[in-house]
Design a protein around this nucleic acid. Structure first.
Length: 666
DNA sequence: ATAGGGTTAG
């Protein structure tokens, strides 16, 4: 009795020491303590060795030293559920999830060491990190059988598991059946929906949570803010900002401020982002990256660069995300030289073999029309990752290199790199460019076999391909198969454009009206599609009606494209004066496309006066475009004004343009 | 002891 009392103190001391080593991750200290425990004979004499041992093993695990940890557990004479749980937890912590599952299986097999609700939360975490949905379902079955299905922790772990595996339906079912939802349950659902690119659902759940009277915490805030940014829900974002201020969540949690800053940046409010930035007393890489990315998104490369400099003055080193943001700023502004500089910088930072950076580099070179360099970067990429390949595919398509994209995709399959949704999404436009029915049917077959056909984006891509191939029946069949509530603005635009492109203006207008009727609000793209359809089919009155509808009853502001369509529509119909009138009342300076449409119409209707006006503007706006000179000369020739036609040819020679082939002048 | 959280990306 005496000896035992004497030993209790060192044991308590061990525990507090281990607690400290766990926090500091000090392997050397842990090893020393381990040695002292053995030398002191503490383990052989004490009755409560198991907690010390499991603690020691956990500490080893946290220090990243699994061999010692695993060996310790093997030495243990008796394995209680709590020890096994600690082992599973340890394997989870160091990323060896399969070993974690193996311990679980052994627990089940042993018969005398039944898993408890702690075990199940850890096991769910293991499946979640491994994205093993099948195993997850099996585990869920065991949860039911063991009667742990009403435990909130287990339920929350299941929610996270299903969300991580993309099984939103399964997650929702668990969530709906929970009798007690903690703030963690709500947070898991919100962030889960966002991660599965269902920002709308995420926002909706947040609103539900608020009306249910659940107190949001910092995790809630950082889960819902990215969704607000994604949807450009500035008002909701501001509400969340108010909550943060009221509860003082941003004061000690840098993630909260970073999320706020990013939300404002995504909503295009760099002033507000700057204000959040200003208020922060500490800034890390994420803060700076979010700022840089914000300016990049809003097209202000100068400010992005400036923030990059300030970041370095602040002593913060860039990470792959920082550099990718800078590279994407270069891609969207076609700054090849600057992009090359960042390529060099990534090399000096020893980050050039990071997948994120490789992908950003491939994207940057492709957008700057250097697909050759993109392929070069891809060739040097060692990892068998999908993302860089996707970037190459979309880079090819972006440059109209359909055959190269398809070739690259075949290479991908040969190299056994697994295609994903983004792969197919990047690839399908290549088939739309080719407009080859046989090949289209081949890829349709592939997509069907890959099981991706359930995705609306993919179906939209297929509809576009069939439409471009002229197979409107096939396109329409695919369109009809999409459930009514899943038909989004993009798929409507594609089908309208498909009919329009082949001269079926009436069908296009009808579909457009059906879309509006079904409650989908047209955007600038849909208006372009339908106006284009009208101009192709010569539906002047319908076109004018729709254009007026757009001007007066719709929040969508008309753009160059819409005016171009209208000028084209009126012009083709011979209503040249009206077309010219429209150009003169445009709310912005007419561009080359608008004048080009008028000039084209003047050629058809042999109208010199307006043709000359249009041409005069075009010579100024795009002096090196030979086509404009040719078209004006064509009008002169048609009217027998050979001298004027000859003058135009002289004019071209004077500004040093290559002489157009003679036949096009007549 | 247990579950959820910030910047990029095809």
């Amino acid at each position: 009795m005496n000896g035992r009392k004497h030993l209790l103190k060192p044991l308590a001391q061990c525990r507090s020491l281990l607690q400290r080593f766990k926090a500091t991750r000090s392997l050397t200290s842990t090893k020393l303590l381990h040695a002292r425990i053995i030398v002191s004979g503490l383990l052989s004499t004490s009755g409560s060795t198991a907690p010390v041992l499991s603690n020691l093993a956990l500490t080893y695990a946290l220090c990243g030293h699994v061999p010692h940890a695993a060996a310790l557990f093997d030495e243990l004479p008796v394995r209680s559920p709590s020890l096994c749980n600690a082992l599973i937890r340890m394997y989870n912590l160091c990323g060896r999830h399969y070993e974690a599952l193996y311990v679980f299986v052994r627990m089940l097999a042993s018969g005398w060491c039944p898993p408890d609700y702690f075990t199940y939360t850890f096991v769910c975490k293991a499946c979640s990190d491994l994205s093993l949905l099948d195993v997850g379902f099996a585990v869920h079955g065991k949860v039911f059988a063991a009667g742990f299905d009403a435990d909130t922790f287990v339920q929350n772990a299941l929610l996270a598991l299903y969300m991580n595996c993309g099984a939103m339906g399964a997650a929702r079912k668990v969530f709906d059946e929970m009798h007690e939802r903690t703030v963690v349950s709500w947070n898991t659902m919100i962030s889960g929906y966002f991660k599965n690119s269902y920002s709308g659902e995420a926002v909706m759940l947040f609103k539900l949570m608020m009306s249910a009277g659940v107190e949001p915490d910092s995790a809630t805030v950082v889960s819902v803010l990215p969704a607000c940014g994604n949807l450009k829900e500035l008002d909701l974002g501001k509400c969340v900002h108010n909550i943060v201020e009221e509860k003082g969540l941003g004061n000690k949690n840098i993630a909260v401020s970073n999320a706020l800053l990013d939300m404002y940046a995504k909503c295009g409010r760099m002033d507000e982002a700057q204000a959040v930035f200003h208020e922060m007393d500490k800034r890390d890489v994420v803060t700076w990256s979010a700022m840089i990315n914000g300016y990049a998104l809003n097209g202000d490369v100068g400010k992005a660069l400036n923030n990059c400099r300030l970041m370095q003055f602040d002593g913060v080193k860039p990470n792959p995300v920082t550099i990718s943001s800078l590279l994407s700023a270069c891609s969207s502004s076609f700054l090849l030289k600057l992009g090359r500089c960042f390529h060099g910088w990534s090399m000096r930072q020893k980050l050039e073999s990071d997948v994120t950076i490789e992908t950003a580099l491939i994207d940057m070179y492709a957008k700057c029309k250097r697909v050759d360099v993109s392929f070069h970067v891809l060739a040097r990429a060692l990892q068998k990752k999908t993302a860089p390949w996707n970037a190459v595919l979309s880079g090819c398509v972006h440059n109209g290199l359909a055959k190269e994209a398809i070739q690259a995709f075949k290479q991908m399959l040969i190299k056994e790199i697994e295609p994903n949704l983004a792969t197919v999404n990047s690839l399908l436009p290549a088939y739309a460019i080719l407009a080859d029915l046989q090949q289209a049917m081949n890829i349709h077959g592939y997509v069907a076999r890959s099981g991706l056909v359930r995705n609306v984006e993919i179906i939209t891509g297929l509809i576009d391909i069939y439409a471009k191939c002229g197979r409107l029946e096939s396109a329409h069949r695919l369109f009809n198969d999409i459930p009514r509530n899943e038909k989004d603005i993009v798929v409507w635009s594609v089908i309208v454009a498909g009919y329009g492109m082949h001269g079926h203006g009436e069908a296009a207008v009808l579909l457009f009206k059906e879309m509006v009727h079904s409650g989908v609000n047209p955007n600038e793209v849909t208006f372009t599609s339908v106006l284009h359809a009208c101009s192709h089919a010569g539906l002047v009155e319908e076109g004018l009606d729709l254009f007026n509808f757009m001007l007066h009853n719709n929040p969508v502001k008309p753009h160059f494209d819409h005016y171009t369509c209208m000028v084209d529509l009126l012009g083709r119909a011979g209503r040249l004066q009206e077309a010219y009138g429209l150009i003169r009342t445009m709310p912005f300076k007419p561009n080359h496309a608008v004048w080009g449409a008028l000039l084209g119409a003047c050629v058809i209707h042999e109208n010199v006066e307006l043709g000359e006006i249009a041409a005069k503007w075009l010579f100024e706006l795009e002096p090196e475009n030979t086509g404009n000179y040719v078209l004006l000369a064509k009008i002169y020739s048609a009217l027998g004004r050979w001298k004027d036609a000859e003058d135009i040819r002289h004019m071209m020679k004077k500004i040093g343009l290559r002489k157009a082939p003679a036949h096009s002048l007549v």
